[in-house]
Design a protein around this nucleic acid. Structure first.
Length: 930
DNA sequence: GCGATCACG
DNA sequence: GACGTACGTGATCGCA
């Protein structure tokens, strides 16, 4: 959630959304969605209003903070004061009711914060935020024409009636009420309000009220002097209805002190995401506004325009291939095309377990087919009873694969896929080595990292304005979801052939752009060649000792039970130890412990730093919770989950690496994540003992030592650091020695620790706050350290300034091997967003270059091992570490080779001015090898 | 589906 | 002078 400070330069816009909806519903002609008749008139009005407003506000008037405010529930504190408050209101009309949630959806699609709070009207929230902003000197515009809000108007706070395009200030208030904003509530208290059922004093209207207040100032004063009033009728009314007037004043007076949950700063404006917004508008079937919004985004260059001469999608053209003759036709067409898109359909997301269900192939836009191979009851005649089904009328899987294999392995035919590592693995498990290949997901990643996601649906939407059939539309969702082998063939064909079609079109669009964007080398030498390497690692998997994990799990379980008893005793009650909410209430509510800190959602923070603070003061419960949490984490995430991850067929654990997940070009690991296996604590390290080598083999772990700091030394060209690495010095001690002017010999470990934190901080785009947090010191002290560091290493500051300047100018940064990360927020007006982008700009080239280097090592590794006739298999990558499994007799030779390949990985593309050091060790378990 | 928490580099 | 912040990830849990 973006956040920005509020000051004199800020301008907050608050949209009175609930009032708008009612007004739009009655003022605008009814409108219903063409496809299903859902009434959407008020939603359309709301979207139009919001869009027009946002367009008008571009340029100097651009708000810095923006929110839509809604009523929630119908019961507020005013009903306690006066049960008849708003009692005259009818239920909202039938046609309006379904539109409320849609309007909330709309405001989210427009990236507007939607605010609401039980027990308060939208007006109270508006009052609270408006006053808060005003107190900080900001300007406020309330978008509403509701006269009840006029009491808020000041020289800083104005109102905007969008339907009449009128700005309302203090003058308008005088016009309407005959008094200034500060007396509006008094007028309303006397005159009453029939729409809200505020009684007021009978017979007194706005005019009279204004006259009376001109004389007496306030309602209280007036009532106190009611006896003096000359007109007998008016005098009597005021005496008789004094209490009613007092209550009325309370009813109309807005509460500007609501305990709001979202801090004002968090209402910072945020540009709507073009794709999300257009998706919503299309779903609503708002033709005109969708077109207008799209044209604006295209003109601004944030949404891709459709290429000229593009062919529309026509799924009628897709073919279901169910006989061998037709299959041969398609194979011939594929050879003619030279480039084809391929997609496999399976019965599971896990490519190590799944069965091949069908294959789709596209040879040109709209020219695509689906070849069902493993569908149950393809004619959908069995009514769910497989025994009654007709014999499946689909080509025999083995025969089809035999016919396809030459095509799929033909050097002259390029096979394009979206996330093709998945399909590569499926084919590999069916005896086919897919080659040569291209991956549209990775093409998009090389071209657009940081600009948008790289999933097929998103890319199709963004580049073709075409929404592919959602998977859940063919397979259903939740409990009722079916596997793809049960999808009827007509639907399966539409879905699968379309995926191949879209993929081919994406390839046609992206491939020529590589060169223009100067990312050809990144894609061709780092990403594409890594696909088969990773696929092989994933498929090989790593052996895990299930019994060992199971024993560890029971041990943890027993100790957790003990801690639970102790915790209940300390707390004086039973509670759910896994619930931060319950824990917070006990610690800071009932036990009233000190130092309670907020979280974003307003709950007590109970994270480790808070609990450690309390434990240090000698409180018992926090320490118990800390210990319990450690065990609970280890058990649920590791000892239990890892057992479940063992593949029943291979008896090994197969992770899946994502190549387009991390913005910097790092890999990430999922299902299970094997890149975050514990090591930092004694307890957690035990889990690594469960990762073992096959009988007669050992595991080898080889890791780059300090690779990111070495890259910093190289990229920023710092002689002192480079020499330290060349001389094999302890880099943190060396930094400390320079900064604090003390000898390395006999150095206080605390001093070295500080220097180490600073070294890491530099890589992260340092701030005094972050460093202070890390070291548990005052911000001033941290600030002094940073100053001392930059004085000793002025080259680092120069590098940081230059990198930020480059990023600001180009809106991207590059790694040493040319990988780009786009940072569109570098130009953001929002200070916090921009600062974040600046830190990314510092960090990404370093983290990304390290990722490039280990990728190069991984790509070179299989061939280097084969050349030395070593049987080592690369199993895992953990950012700066590679894990291998190798026959015990080859361990020594493998270590030497692996070290050499890793050290030389940057060559010949890049000659680093610092040496790369690789530490490697062989052992029976990962715990010992590391 | 999301926030809080915590595991790793 | 005030503001909000360390960089990059994924899994699990409680809770709405």
């Amino acid at each position: 959630m973006p956040s920005a400070p509020i000051n004199e330069d800020s301008h907050l816009y608050l949209i009175d959304a609930s009032a708008y909806i009612f007004r739009a519903f009655h003022a605008l002609p009814p409108l219903s969605r063409a496809s299903d008749g859902l009434p959407v008139g008020a939603v359309a009005g709301f979207c139009n209003m919001l869009w027009k407003l946002l367009e008008e506000l571009k340029g100097d008037e651009r708000p810095t903070h923006f929110a839509c405010v809604f009523d929630k529930g119908s019961y507020t504190f005013r009903n306690d004061l006066y049960p008849d408050y708003k009692a005259n209101r009818d239920e909202p009309p039938e046609d309006l009711r379904p539109q409320f949630p849609l309007v909330r959806e709309a405001s989210i699609a427009f990236a507007c914060h939607a605010l609401e709070m039980e027990g308060f009207e939208a007006d109270d929230l508006i009052a609270t935020y408006a006053r808060q902003a005003e107190a900080k000197g900001a300007r406020v515009t309330i978008v509403s024409s509701d006269k009840d809000l006029m009491q808020l108007v000041t020289d800083k706070i104005t109102m905007l009636d969008t339907m009449k395009s009128k700005h309302l200030g203090i003058e308008a208030v005088y016009e309407k009420f005959g008094v200034g904003p500060e007396k509006v509530v008094d007028v309303q208290a006397l005159a009453g309000d029939s729409t809200d059922n505020v009684p007021g004093a009978p017979g007194i209207g706005v005019k009279t009220a204004a006259t009376l207040l001109g004389e007496y100032g306030t309602v209280e004063e007036l009532l106190a002097h009611a006896e003096e009033i000359k007109q007998p009728k008016r005098r009597q009314t005021l005496i008789d209805f004094a209490d009613q007037v007092r209550i009325s004043k309370q009813l109309v007076k807005l509460d500007d002190n609501v305990p709001v949950e979202t801090p004002l700063e968090d209402l910072a404006v945020c540009d709507p995401d073009p794709v999300t917004l257009i998706e919503f508008l299309e779903k609503m079937e708002f033709r005109t506004i969708t077109r207008r919004v799209r044209e604006t985004f295209e003109a601004e260059g944030v949404l891709e325009e459709p290429t000229q001469g593009e062919v529309g999608f026509d799924k009628e053209n897709y073919v279901c291939v169910r006989d061998f003759k037709t299959l041969e036709d398609w194979i011939a067409r594929a050879y003619d095309a030279g480039v084809i898109a391929v997609d496999t359909e399976t019965d599971s997301l896990d490519c190590q377990l799944c069965n091949l269900v069908g294959i789709s192939i596209a040879v040109a836009p709209n020219e695509a087919c689906y070849i069902p191979l493993g569908h149950i009851d393809p004619d959908h005649t069995g009514g769910g009873d497989m025994f009654d089904a007709d014999p499946p009328r689909q080509i025999n899987k083995a025969e089809a694969l035999k016919a396809l294999k030459p095509l799929l392995e033909d050097k002259a035919i390029l096979k394009v896929g979206q996330n093709i590592k998945y399909d590569y693995t499926v084919f590999a498990r069916n005896g086919i080595t897919l080659a040569p290949i291209d991956d549209t997901m990775l093409l998009s990643f090389a071209l657009h990292a940081g600009m948008h996601g790289h999933g097929m649906d998103e890319l199709s939407e963004r580049y073709f304005h075409h929404t592919p059939i959602p998977f859940k539309e063919v397979a259903g969702t939740g409990q009722k979801q079916i596997t793809f082998d049960r999808v009827p063939l007509d639907k399966a064909t539409e879905y699968a052939a379309e995926d191949a079609d879209v993929t081919l079109r994406l390839w046609q669009m992206f491939k020529p752009r590589l060169h223009k964007e100067r990312v050809t080398t990144v894609y061709e030498t780092l990403d594409r060649p890594l696909i088969p390497v990773l696929a092989d690692m994933e498929r090989h998997g790593i052996k895990v000792d299930r019994d060992f994990l199971s024993r560890l799990s029971s041990d943890f379980q027993q100790r957790m039970a003990g801690l639970e008893d102790a915790a209940y005793k300390a707390a004086g009650q039973e509670f759910n130890m896994g619930s931060p909410k319950q824990l917070g209430e006990i610690l800071f509510g009932e036990m009233d412990l000190p130092g309670g800190k907020k979280t974003k959602s307003g709950q007590w923070s109970t994270d480790a730093s808070q609990l450690e603070y309390l434990a240090a003061q000698g409180h018992e419960l926090p320490q118990i919770i800390l210990d319990w949490r450690t065990l609970s984490k280890l058990r649920s995430t590791y000892t239990e989950a890892l057992q479940d991850a063992i593949n029943p067929e291979t008896k090994r654990v197969h992770t899946s690496y994502s190549m387009a997940g991390a913005q910097t070009g790092r890999l990430s690991s999922t299902d299970p994540n094997l890149q975050n296996i514990p090591i930092r604590t004694e307890e957690g390290r035990k889990i690594r003992e469960a990762f073992i080598a096959e009988e007669g083999n050992v595991l080898i772990s080889a890791d780059y030592s300090q690779i990111e700091l070495r890259l910093l030394a190289h990229i920023a060209d710092i002689d002192a650091l480079k020499n330290a690495f060349k001389d094999g010095l302890d880099i943190h001690a060396m930094t400390a020695s320079e900064m604090f002017d003390t000898p390395i010999e006999g150095m206080d470990p605390m001093v070295r620790r500080k220097a180490k934190a600073i070294n890491f901080g530099i890589i992260y785009g340092i701030s005094a706050f972050g460093l202070a947090n890390q070291l548990g010191i005052e911000r001033g002290e941290a600030s002094d350290y940073i100053k001392a560091y930059f004085e000793k290493f002025p080259g680092i500051r120069k590098y940081m300034d230059e990198t930020k300047a480059f990023a600001k100018e180009n809106l991207f940064v590059k790694t040493a091997f040319g990988r780009k990360l786009h940072l569109k927020e570098m130009g953001s007006k929002n200070g916090a967003q921009r600062a974040f982008a600046e830190r990314q700009a510092i960090n990404a080239p370093i983290q990304g270059s390290a990722a490039d280097i280990i990728k190069r090592a991984m790509i070179a590794m299989p061939e280097a091992l084969a050349k030395k006739k070593l049987d080592a298999k690369m199993l895992l990558q953990v950012h700066d570490e590679l894990i291998f499994e190798v026959p015990e007799s080859q361990a020594e030779d493998t270590i030497k080779l692996v070290q050499s390949v890793m050290q030389k990985a940057p060559l010949p593309a890049l000659q680093l001015s610092v040496p790369l050091d690789v530490e490697a060790k062989a052992a029976k378990t990962w715990a010992e090898a590391h």
